[in-house]
Design a protein around this nucleic acid. Structure first.
Lengths: 334, 334
DNA sequence: GTGAAAGCGCTAACAA
DNA sequence: TTGTTAGCGCTTTCAC
């Protein structure tokens, strides 16, 4: 049960070479005669030597570990991002330290400090909001930080996202085109920049195009989960809305069930479009028409971007926008 | 952008004490005069000193990092386990290196090696099967490994689970009691010990109690996902089954939708019970009656167990079984 | 192509 | 209560 017994020193002795040479073969350095390389490799194999990454990290000042702060792994949207991150991290031989933040500023700061203490080579940050406190933490980090599925109003950090505003315009337009005059906009906290500064504007853009006045009574805020969507159903039904665009799938699932339970038939009496195209969209009845977005890819691209930053390579663009789409299912009429 | 500049040495110099003393205050060692402690703390504050966990890990041979191997973060069941793990890990000041394995033996072995190379203090392993290859890897680990939501046929590793066999007996009995003679057993790969060695036996136990012969034609294997459940619907409908117990929620969601789409009304024509009580159970229509299990707690308890093992404390029990329950929803008749 | 040696930043005896 | 001094296992100049 005691850790690590065979060291680079043992290998050097057994192979009758210096530690430096062993280090070279372990790290694939070309400057080793192929015959010594073979000899060393044989000893490594025989002794079952496994390099100590901690010692290596201390000596080289690179840990090949990155930090990932996630609001909650249990949330499918973020889990999907995380999966994209982990896959390309593995591809580049990085490990991931994952930390749940619950979007609490206190926790976010604390996990950032932990991560930095562990000497991660970079950080990918997910969440719903970037405020001064956390922006400050980014500044204190001596390593690159990239945002995945998150926009900083200040645009200080590299990020990868989709065009939330345009996507919301598309979805709203789809409904307006069908003749709806009163389309509800159902979203999360409007203090979140992505909602207020992007989605809402996209919704308004569409209204403007159809010369429909913006009506605050048609915007509803939930907290992104199923229950809040379900509870919103009553208010939505009571409003004069005949359709809705929803910012995320869990709320949309709640809404469609809530509406159905309240005797409102979707899509006959009420049409709706959601935003994430997650598996939930096909589980609900009716299935949910949705904006499509490459969530996994957002994570993957963010991680790829981070590897470049860690290698001090130039970035072609600081804020990457991945393409989105739309798919018709059963919550809209043909 | 360069890492860590102020070291323990800088603090010592500024505070006019030795490194040892600084180390003591940082680690909360009691043997420091409170006035020197204050002095040192002030300097730490002023300089913005942040201990280097890598150096600490090398010197102390403890990294306060644990490895978590997970089949796929994107799977809600495992994500929930991971959340439980992370929460108690944070509570004990451990960080988590998360690695997706996709249940591929190759990947599992590889991530185990990575983790061990990083000198993690312990590992929590999740998956569906423990075979010789991976058992060997556990043996090679010089740190404790605990299984969460996974049983080893050999019972070599500490683990935490629920009584899958009894739970399945309960669910099956619920259906048998209602008068069903032909209850289907729908599960994942029967090569998985948890299915073959526990759930199936539990199903058979219930049948035996009701003197109903076991019929292989009533057992269906899927691969745990929505699609496979949906596709199984046709075969299930074609069989003489009038009810079913299902091993996981995604398959159950697929099955209920598949059945409904095929004109079979649940629960009127067909009753079913699922196993995880996840949010999916309330999203589907009808909502799914389910075995309830404390998934988050399984992760949490596994992590707690690991902390004990890492401290070389005695374990009261090697294989912990957490209580399960049952909840009636709409996929069974009252 | 290979080796010697000086750290990387910290902890943990052991002294004092 | 505090300081001194070895390391921890590796990378990385710098010589040879």
């Amino acid at each position: 049960m005691d850790k690590q017994t065979v060291t680079i020193y043992d290998v050097a002795r057994e192979a009758k070479v210096s530690m430096a040479t062993v280090s070279r073969v372990v790290n694939g350095n070309a400057n080793v005669k192929s015959e010594t390389k073979d000899k060393v490799k044989a000893v490594i194999e025989r002794l079952g030597y496994r390099p100590n990454a901690v010692a290596r990290g201390l000596a080289s000042r690179r840990t090949t570990t990155i930090g990932v702060v996630i609001p909650d792994v249990t949330n499918h949207y973020f889990a999907e991002l995380a999966r994209g991150i982990d896959d390309v991290a593995a591809m580049y031989h990085y490990q991931i330290i994952l930390a749940n933040s619950d979007e609490s500023n206190t926790k976010e700061v604390q996990v950032m400090e932990n991560l930095l203490g562990k000497q991660v080579d970079g950080i990918i940050f997910m969440g719903n909001i970037v405020n001064d406190v956390i922006r400050d933490e980014f500044k204190k980090a001596d390593v690159p930080v990239v945002l995945a599925g998150l926009l900083d109003e200040q645009e200080e950090q590299p990020s990868v996202n989709i065009a939330y505003r345009a996507a919301m315009t598309d979805a709203t337009t789809r409904l307006l085109k069908a003749g709806h005059k009163n389309v509800a906009f159902i979203t999360g906290d409007l203090n979140h920049y992505m909602n207020k500064g992007h989605r809402l504007l996209g919704y308004q853009d569409a209204l403007a195009t159809y010369d429909i006045p913006y009506d605050e009574k048609l915007v509803f805020q939930g907290n992104y989960d199923y229950q809040s969507g379900y509870e919103l159903a009553a208010a939505v039904k009571a409003s004069n809305a005949t359709a809705a665009v929803v910012s995320n799938d869990e709320m949309a699932a709640g809404l469609v069930n809530g509406l159905t339970d309240a005797g409102v038939s979707v899509p006959d009496d009420f049409e709706m479009i959601t935003s994430n195209d997650s598996k939930l969209t096909v589980i609900t009845r009716p299935q949910l028409s949705s904006i499509t977005q490459p969530i996994y890819d957002i994570g993957a691209v963010a991680m790829r971007m981070l590897t470049k930053l860690m290698n001090r390579e130039e970035l072609a663009a600081n804020d990457i926008i991945l393409p989105h789409g739309y798919i018709d299912r059963e919550s809209t009429k043909k």
